[in-house]
Amino acid sequence: MTPLVQAEQAVLGSVFLDPGQLDHLSPWLRPDHFSRPAHAALYASMLKLRADGHPATTGKSGDPIPLAWVTDTVQEASTRTRGLTASYAHSLISACPHPTHAPVYGRMVLEGAIHRSVTQHAIRLHQAARADAVRGGVEETVHQAQILSDLLAELAHQWGTEPRPIPPPAPNTSPAQQPQPVDEQVLADEEFLLGCISARPEQLLDVVGWLHPGDFADTGHQQIYRALGALHHRGEPIDQLTVLWETQRRGALSDGTLDAERVLQICDPLSLSSVAEHFGEQIVQASLVRTAAASARQVRALADDKSLAPGRLIGYALHTLGPLDEVRRRLRIASGTEPAPLRTDILSAAAPPKARTEAARSRSRAHTTAASAPVTAAAPHFHSPDRPTRRSPS
């Protein structure tokens, strides 16, 4: 028997022994907080009998408890679930260490309910993300993500804390998950987008405000997108060779992330009339689904850690959902449902300052050496006053 089950039994036993404890429990402890259906049915029956004015709940403190309190509670609970007997109710009474400790036992039940609820909704978010990855949508993922965020805020209110994201003190040490397979269509969309931007670099301004390198599923595509952005930011020309050189400068060729043939193939100039924004939005959608699946696994691992107090669990879970919320915001910007924030760095990228452009181009020019420099005039010769000069013999 787990400590949680023992806590549920202690709560019910304390109320059987002292119905007045419902005054301390009813404002915040609900039947659905109990993990076992029989316990939930008994607690719901106690609340109903109290609302109906049962004599056991209207007496003064210290008055003897009517025998009918136990039998009436079991009878009412039997209408909600099966298998309840009066003997089980008496076993709950014997399982209660002390009736006046009911609020503490109730807090244990609530703590278990918080862990259980976060686990259930994290599983639903992960299932929704996997389903959307197959059918190519994001609606159910977004819906379940919002439900989980709202749930965490509600649980924080129930526990008496603020729903504030708290970074965990150490990285999550849950067992390593197998890398999720990426749909070939997603990779094709990424390559197509990079090809569109390579052929028409001005389209980078249409997506750079909401499409980030981390949205690409393929690490090689991330590096190419970074290279395109760096070239455009410096005002340098964009073509197959300049992108290849920039990826080499960033170490993507030496570490094996990319090879020259692949970069040249992706950046091959194509006579395309497609709009980069369309493929960019598809990439962000796929990124949202992947981020949701990863966040759901991390939140579930946190909820499975019974050593975490509810306040910390809620704070850590909200922090874990932060990247997902950020991708959701950028998807709203991409779809036009939310205005994009004004960013001066993006605006300046449309027309790089002349000084920055010249500095970038100067790094690409061949510098003239003294040996190859043409002599246009005799260089003046200055004598140092500290050193004697040599005169030719007359």
Score class of each variant (00 low, 15 high):
P3T: 05
D23V: 14
P27S: 09
P31R: 13
P31T: 10
R36K: 08
A40C: 06
L42D: 02
Y43E: 02
S45E: 04
K48Y: 04
R50E: 04
H54N: 13
P55E: 13
D63E: 15
L67D: 15
T73N: 09
E76T: 15
Y88K: 07
H90A: 09
A95V: 02
C96N: 07
P97W: 03
H98M: 06
T100K: 09
Y105V: 06
V109D: 03
E111I: 01
A113G: 14
A113R: 01
T119D: 12
H121W: 05
L125E: 01
H126Q: 15
H126S: 14
Q127T: 14
A128R: 00
A128K: 00
A129S: 12
D132Y: 01
G136W: 12
H143F: 14
I147G: 14
A156I: 06
Q158Y: 09
G160F: 09
G160V: 09
R164G: 02
P171F: 04
A176D: 05
A176Y: 01
P179F: 08
Q180F: 05
V182H: 03
D183P: 07
E184N: 13
V186E: 06
A188D: 15
L193D: 00
C196V: 11
I197F: 03
A199G: 15
E202M: 03
L211F: 03
H212A: 09
G220M: 12
L228M: 13
G229K: 06
V243W: 02
E246A: 11
T247E: 08
Q248M: 04
R250K: 06
G256H: 14
T257G: 10
T257D: 05
I266S: 04
P269A: 07
L272H: 10
S274R: 01
E281D: 05
A292Q: 00
A296F: 00
K306N: 05
K306V: 10
I314T: 09
L318Q: 11
H319Q: 11
L324Y: 04
P341L: 02
P341E: 05
L342N: 07
I346D: 07
L347D: 13
A350Q: 11
A351F: 14
P353Y: 07
T369A: 07
S372D: 11
A373Y: 07
T376E: 06
R390E: 15
S394K: 12
